[in-house]
Simulated assay, not measured.
Amino acid sequence: MPLSVKLDPRDVGLLVVDMQNGFCHPEGSRGQAFGADAVKNPQDIIPNVTKTIDLAHRLDIPVWFTQQVHYDDDVLRSRRRIPSHLERRGVKLELCRRGTWDAELLDEMKAIKEDRDEVVVKHRSSAFFQTTLEVELRMKDVQVLVVLGTTTSFCVDSTIRDAYARDFDVVVPAECVADSDDAAHAATLASIERFHGVVTDLPGLTAALDG
């Protein structure tokens, strides 16, 4: 899936969404609640994500990691009248609680993260919702946002929609995003390609940046 445009690395930022123990590690809260299959796809993309981060570092493209953090005393969640997507499945998931191993970035992300990279702590699905991400992107003069990570149909999708609404160009290398639901993953990629950005692959992204 080659890109039809050449990308100038000076215009580009890389956003790595929620590559955390709770979402991706077999011993994290999602893996414990739903089994190893629930984290297989996020586990499978780790090598592609690290390759893309390596590429960004080599080309001096700024990198952001998001870190989802939930509070035990989040009164906003307790006020909701409609059950959450997890409650509707009969699951109580203590996901990415503040100060826990579950909320930490995967060891593979910690190993590749450099001091110049940023971490955006978020409390809801979109990396833009009440965070400093937008102003940080503007300060770095980012126009094209390359988005990686999990979960394709929720946090990745929410972030991409918000990026599009803020007039960023969005690029998604398909083998660098993952979902526990293959159908939802495919449908979201189709929606991104139709409305909110372009879907490519890692060779296509590399050629567009470094060709």
Rank of each mutant, 00 (worst) to 15 (best):
I192W: 03
T100W: 02
C24Y: 02
F154R: 15
D18G: 07
T52C: 07
V144G: 04
I45E: 06
N21F: 03
A186C: 03
R166K: 14
N21Y: 09
L209P: 15
D11E: 01
D179I: 05
L76W: 14
D44W: 02
L86G: 02
F154M: 14
A111Q: 09
R194F: 14
I61W: 02
Q68D: 13
D201K: 07
D167P: 04
R124D: 01
L14A: 10
W64C: 14
A127L: 07
R88Y: 08
E136I: 04
V172P: 04
L202N: 11
V135L: 09
L15N: 04
I160L: 11
V119Q: 00
T200K: 04
K6M: 13
I192V: 14
T66A: 08
P62N: 08
D74R: 09
R58G: 11
D74W: 09
G35L: 07
T151W: 07
R98V: 12
T188C: 09
R138V: 00
T188Y: 08
H25F: 02
G13S: 04
T151H: 11
V119K: 01
R10C: 00
V171D: 12
G149D: 09
L95K: 09
D18K: 08
R124N: 07
L205D: 09
A38Q: 05
G149Q: 08
P42A: 11
Q130Y: 10
E104D: 11
K51Q: 10
E134F: 01
V91A: 12
R97H: 11
V63Q: 01
V177Y: 08
D102R: 13
D37Y: 10
V172R: 08
V171T: 12
V170P: 08
P203F: 13
N41Q: 13
G204P: 15
D11Y: 00
D179P: 06
A174E: 15
V5C: 03
